[in-house]
Simulated scan of single mutants.
Amino acid sequence: MTLRPVRWPVRAINPFSRLQRSYKVLAIETSCDDTCVAVLDRKNSKTAPEVLVHLKNTLDSSSQGGIVPTKAHLHHQLKIGGLTQRALQLSNFPKIDLICVTRGPGMPGSLSGGLDFAKGLSVAWQKPLLGMHHMLGHLLVPRMETNGERPSYPFLSLLVSGGHTTVVLSQSITDHEIICDSMDIAVGDSLDKCGRELGIKGTMIAKEMEKFIDEDPSCAHDTEIQMVMPNPLKNKHNRVDLQAFSFAPFLTAVRNNLKQPIENYTIKQIRSMAYQTQEAIFNHIMTRLSKVIALNRDKLIGVRHLVCSGGVGANKRLRHLLETKLCPNFETFHYPPLDLCTDNAVMIGWAGIELYESKKFSTELEVSPIRKWPLSELLTVPGWTTVD
């Protein structure tokens, strides 16, 4: 990859000249149905940035049975301007030196709402723009509290959300290898769809289902209804299938286990079925993850840290399973703060800070959203450049 240096106009301040002082970052995230804006204060390169403000406005799609891309696009168009104005107002209208925005992966219509707006600000303010990888944000945000010190490279990440279920081996900020991925739907999508079949309501169904289960922990021992759940890929033996997840079969299983309309079941019975469903899905993750670790022993030499990030990474049961079943394989386990597990602009800002300071990267203005963008191909897409 050849990067062409960009020389910013004289009136534009290059944040690299101010690393020992303070520079401000405006971050925007619009990859799905959350319109997110944050302002970060990078006071110096020795301490973690301060989050001056972080705002989020989520499209309410609970009545739609899922996210409608055209409505999500319109939501971002309606909300991004006012939300950014509010964020700048709450942070006392700081002088922004760097603009970070999600470029992909995600829904193109949603991405364009944030990316086009950020490009306009970059032109108006004459400030560098960074089009960031959404999953890189999830992967790096656990490092923010320690200012990038921990987890240290190399480390392994389990990225679990509504759109992705991926195991990534990271050697550096730009060197990532995907060693396990879902062959159908993501774990968050599976949890949402299974929860909907069980009558769970809300915008974030997987989170609501966890809350519903935790209201009565005794449901873990309820044997009144025994669900028959799958163990996907159990009998597969080739390396491709061994290093993969499959979550679509769980939705079919939940439907097959429902012998009558969901409203005919008691709350106790539904809670038990929800627990069994969540447990089966998480056990699948643990089974496949253990296989991946066993098959990649040589690659994982020197890997001491495991990151779990993404919306599903906030689930307490999943964290417990990771730490109890994988304790012999890792010295430490790392997670984002709970409010930064789901999509947010802070992670985009922090990932931008790490990439900007370590590689002096920026993004050309002639770029477009990227719907599919594997982390292993972070630098292969057009549009990267360097700040001179």
Rank of each mutant, 00 (worst) to 15 (best):
P151L: 05
G313L: 01
V39M: 04
T203G: 01
D184G: 08
D339A: 03
E29A: 05
S290E: 15
L300M: 14
T332A: 11
H334P: 06
E331V: 06
T84K: 01
W384I: 07
K56L: 15
I353V: 15
T84G: 08
W373D: 11
M347N: 08
R319G: 11
P249D: 11
T386S: 13
G199H: 02
L355R: 01
R317W: 10
L379Q: 05
K119E: 10
D116I: 10
L88Q: 09
V6P: 01
M286H: 08
K236S: 14
H284K: 03
A48N: 06
G81T: 14
E197D: 13
E366I: 02
L258I: 11
K236F: 11
N256H: 14
S376L: 01
Q278T: 12
A274S: 15
S182Y: 03
V303K: 04
I80K: 03
G82C: 02
D41I: 00
K211E: 14
V10P: 00
T380F: 00
V39A: 05
V303S: 10
G114A: 05
G188Q: 09
D339C: 07
F212S: 09
P9F: 02
T252N: 13
D216G: 01
I99Y: 04
P369N: 04
S31Q: 07
I173Y: 14
L74K: 13
A345F: 05
M135T: 05
V292K: 02
A280S: 15
R371Y: 01
T165W: 03
D60K: 05
P230K: 00
E377H: 10
A253M: 04
G81A: 07
P154D: 09
R239K: 12
S157I: 07
P15V: 10
I205W: 06
G109C: 11
P154S: 05
P261S: 03
D175C: 03
K359C: 14
F245Y: 15
G81Y: 12
N256G: 00
A38R: 01
N283M: 13
L55P: 12
T30I: 07
V141N: 04
Q64W: 14
N235Q: 10
R297N: 13
K95M: 11
G131Y: 04
D175L: 02
K234L: 15
C100Y: 07
R143A: 13
N231M: 12
A124L: 12
P261M: 06
G82S: 14
S218A: 14
H76Y: 10
I281G: 11
V292R: 01
F212Q: 03
T30P: 09
G195S: 09
H237W: 05
E149P: 00
D214S: 14
R304S: 15
L378D: 07
L156S: 08
G65F: 10
I13W: 02
L338V: 15
S152Y: 01
S309G: 08
P232A: 04
I67H: 09
S122Y: 07
V381D: 00
L306I: 11
N329Y: 15
I80W: 06
H54R: 01
A274D: 10
K79W: 00
L59K: 07
A87G: 11
L88S: 07
F155K: 03
S31Y: 05
A118F: 05
E377A: 11
K24D: 11
G82H: 12
L322A: 10
A274N: 10
S45K: 08
I370D: 01
M204F: 15
N238W: 02
Y335K: 00
L19Q: 13
A87Y: 04
S368E: 15
I80R: 00
L52E: 14
Q89H: 13
K372A: 08
